[in-house]
Nucleic acid binder design. Structure first.
Lengths: 98, 98
DNA sequence: TTGACACATAAGAATGTTCTTATATGATGT
DNA sequence: ACATCATATAAGAACATTCTTATGTGTCAA
């Protein structure tokens, strides 16, 4: 799933979808890339559970599906004390979830 | 940088370093992988700014370097409203940073 | 200074990713 | 039924990742 977030195009797509949902055509527009390439990225995002889609006429509308993003967020939150503590440099981080 | 987080071995290394700093030998121990493989992962983490290291005798001690983790965390935090709001299903997420 | 230890680097094989072009599918309007 | 629009899928080329084994580098201890 972090793998799906590893690609900058896919992160840009998510940033775009964060603002509002979009059809594929609209998602393609800002990228210097063919439509199949975007569809493939959407597939990766979809398989990672990061987006969902529904049909609407002949368009397919994609939107954010937040659950895995939240998992990633929660994982990173484990490291929060590293930038919160001023004790940072002391290597003072022992088990916070035993 | 998300690319560096995309590999499960590297995330496991970070999880390990989150608890305390470690030498390479200790980091290798839980993995079914050779020492050079781990050293290569450590190099990727280091180039992404996710870990730092210092020499201590003949050991090299690795520890977390939190700045890029925080960037990732901040990026994901942009999506926080998706799992916070109960309006989730309404696609009601318009610009929150214009 | 020599041997052993802890680690890094190099080279290469296997596999995975990310694009392209060409083609298939599914819905709409006539 | 047919042409068209919106999108998906397939096949393949180019490049990147992730391991392996073999070897290099720096530190310590005798």
């Amino acid at each position: 799933m972090f793998r799906a977030l590893a690609d900058p195009t896919r992160r840009a797509i998510l940033d775009r979808l964060r603002r509002r949902e979009h059809g594929v055509g609209a998602l393609c527009e800002p990228f210097a890339m063919t439509q199949p390439a975007i569809s493939q990225h959407l597939r990766v995002l979809s398989e990672a559970g990061l987006v969902r889609s529904r049909r609407q006429g002949r368009e397919r509308i994609y939107s954010i599906s937040p659950r895995p993003l939240r998992q990633a967020f929660d994982w990173l939150a484990h490291f929060e004390s590293f930038w919160t503590d001023r004790l940072d440099a002391l290597g003072d981080h022992l088990d916070d979830d035993p």
